[in-house]
Design a protein around this nucleic acid. Structure first.
Length: 419
RNA sequence: CGGGGUGUAGUGUAACGGCUAACAUUCCUGUUUUGGGAACAGGCGACUCCGGGUUCGAAUCCCGGCGCCCCGACCA
């Protein structure tokens, strides 16, 4: 994409109505637009990041048997009354509205009911199980106080997968796969080294749920990390008894602030009971389906990456989720420079290397560099009189201070290398 | 929902109760520039969040509302 076609612009000043680093950088660099507290639009650059994250999660879900679908956002009251979660006394952050007819409806804030209700039509035999449907969708929660930029919004994009299993053993096998799948996701988006599987309160059907917590001072949660084992315990269940049951010693645990980027938990029959979600086993007897829930907030994940990976000049995207792989800058108004830059841009496009081409002719070199650092694309390539005189193109990683000059073939080899 | 803070061009800020609400940036015109947010000249852009009140006079003081930020509570 040519930057002259990109309508967003970077801002020099930080927004006055944001304190959170993620929102500050994403707004300055033109990835998101704030509509109101807790509600953000995703601009072209932001959407590209979101899509990258979505695809990584999709690949990981598909790899463990996930089947993608899409549940509706408008939800009927009757379905939610079945599980007892329609009442505002039970769930106080519903967004509800009415049809013209006066019928009350809700904007989905989670998906258990929707899935249970749909799958009741399709699950009848042990031969139908297990299944692992999931979807990406916008979720609405009328938070009394949204905060921290895109880390906690009133409207957000998430992935939720639900597992439907015949029994506990079958459920547990998948649950373990899901754990690994989640580790893969956070590792692939570049925050694996800071993200810990964390034991948290489990509810009625299991002792623990598992959160994936990324360590950062911007976090809302407090966790205790056991570095050697690579696991953590949420403060809410941090007791001597729990530590003992997990084989952890208090002196090995380090307190940290962290952001919950994902969580998985066993639902048992909590929803299959009210929805009468049963299957016939080999003997023809009815059994309740055992469910599990596996969620990731994509916006929050994107915000967390920004919180964790940035410097005083801007964002530092991991290559896996960067809006583009390469930021190509053409400096100066020299016709030969322009032609070389344009040629390189076309060649990279032909090779399907994602490139943002700063072809703006009325922008100074310094401004292009500043914009490039702020936007945070992993590779920066400069074409200028100087680089051409030195024999090619200057390539510099966002994380490096000094670039180096290489020729076109070396450049293409470098960018086509898988890492 | 309790507590604290705050609201002025697109953005960031300034203005003692008193001239035509200022400066920077963005944007537009032109000239000159082009390796770290270039220089000069000119120009556009504001019912000072909304509604009341005090006053000869309100961006400024008072009351109410709304928005936004932070702390806390809450977070299926």
């Amino acid at each position: 994409m040519k930057q002259s076609q990109l309508f967003t612009k970077t801002k020099k000043e930080s927004p006055s109505d944001e304190v959170a680093l993620n929102a500050e950088l994403l707004i300055k660099a033109g990835f998101i637009n704030k509509e109101m507290a807790g509600v953000y639009s995703y601009l072209p650059l932001g959407l590209r990041v979101m899509k990258k994250i979505e695809n990584i999660i999709r690949e990981e879900m598909n790899a463990i048997g996930g089947i993608e679908m899409k549940t509706s956002i408008i939800q009927s009251k009757e379905v939610w009354e079945r599980s007892g979660r329609w009442s505002d006394d039970v769930v106080d952050n519903w967004f509800k509205t009415k049809l013209k007819s006066g019928t009350e409806v809700g904007l989905s804030f989670t998906n258990e009911e929707a899935y249970s209700n749909i799958l009741k039509q399709y699950i009848s035999s042990y031969k139908d199980l297990p299944i692992y449907p999931y979807d990406f969708k916008d979720i609405f929660r009328n938070e009394t106080r949204s905060k921290s930029g895109i880390l906690r919004g009133r409207e957000f994009y998430w992935k939720a997968l639900y597992s439907f299993s015949k029994n506990e053993e079958e459920h547990n096998i998948f649950y373990e796969k899901a754990k690994q799948s989640y580790k893969n996701i956070f590792s692939r988006v570049g925050i694996g080294h800071l993200t810990y599987m964390t034991f948290a309160s489990g509810g009625t059907f299991s002792k623990f749920s598992h959160e994936f917590q990324t360590i950062t001072s911007a976090g809302e949660d407090t966790i205790y990390v056991e570095e050697n084992k690579g696991i953590a315990v949420n403060k809410e269940v941090y007791t001597d008894e729990v530590l003992e049951s997990l084989g952890l010693k208090k002196e090995d645990m380090v307190e940290n602030k962290a952001i919950e980027v994902g969580n998985i938990f066993s639902l048992g029959t909590k929803f299959s009971t009210p929805f009468d979600l049963k299957y016939k086993d080999e003997k023809g007897e009815d059994n309740l389906v055992i469910m599990g829930c596996y969620g990731v907030g994509l916006g929050r994940l994107m915000g967390t990456v920004v919180e964790v990976l940035s410097d005083d000049k801007g964002i530092i995207w991991p290559e896996s989720i960067s809006p583009f792989k390469v930021h190509l800058l053409s400096l100066g108004s020299d016709e030969n420079v322009k032609k070389n830059a344009e040629d390189l841009y076309n060649k990279l496009n032909e090779r399907r290397i994602e490139v943002l081409f700063d072809d703006r002719s009325d922008v100074s070199a310094g401004e292009k560099f500043a914009d490039s650092d702020l936007i945070g694309i992993p590779y920066r390539i400069v074409v200028s009189k100087r680089s051409l005189a030195d024999g090619g193109f200057e390539v510099k990683k966002r994380t490096e201070v000094q670039g180096k000059i290489i020729n076109e073939q070396e450049l293409i080899d470098l960018l086509e290398t898988k890492n």
